[in-house]
Amino acid sequence: MTYILEAKDLRKQYPDKLALQGLNLQIEAGEVFCLLGQNGAGKSTTINLFLGFVQPTAGAAYINGLEVASNALRIKQYLAYIPENVMLYPHLTGLENLALFSSLAGFKYKESELLAYLAQAGLPVEAVQRRVGTYSKGMRQKVGIAIAVAKHAKVLLLDEPTSGLDPKASNEFSELLRQLSQQGTAVFMATHDIFRAKEVGTRVGIMREGELVDVRPTALLNANELEQLYLHYMH
């Protein structure tokens, strides 16, 4: 079976630190996998390896069956990425930023379509024509979400995507992820937010010092149990 996202004995050794040790993971289409872990646990390294931004020391990452390291450019058409702190081009408006990133991904949208994506991400209408330099972190995050959604990718790689969002916007984002998941999009989300992981995830994994120490289906745990499990591994 071809998984939409897969890691086989994936390992990353930095000169001063072993960031990831032998990760094995398979994620299917429509699945929302939430990766929990402390800062420096290896979550971002994992995402960077799936993005092809860092080269693995051993093992391999696959997107839609293609090895990332040898298909670094090709695999980008299957994925969209939202970092923890979406930084856009401050001299362009939110609309112009979305148009730019969409055109780079090969999508030439009409203005009405771009406005619809921004509205779906929750960006206030009055902000779309303003330069991004005047945006709050949450507003930039919403443009980042619109960029990812407008790409219609098979995989969403999210690194703390709700960071900076207010509770209402976070809820709307969770709802959006659920919709995308139902449409067959696989989601890989690194997060500190146990409650959000339980709410939107189909599976959660716990990472500690570069090692995936536990993976559970969220359906078998309530939020409290997940928190206890997480704390258990962190001590």
């Binding site: 993005l51 990425y81 970092p83 979406v86 930084m87 990133f101 960029i147």
Partner: peptide, 14 residues
């Protein structure tokens, strides 16, 4: 430094 490079490259640009 700002991280826009990663976002740019994730769109499939070399």
């Amino acid at each position: 430094e700002t991280g826009t490079l990663k976002l740019l490259l994730s769109q499939g640009v070399s």
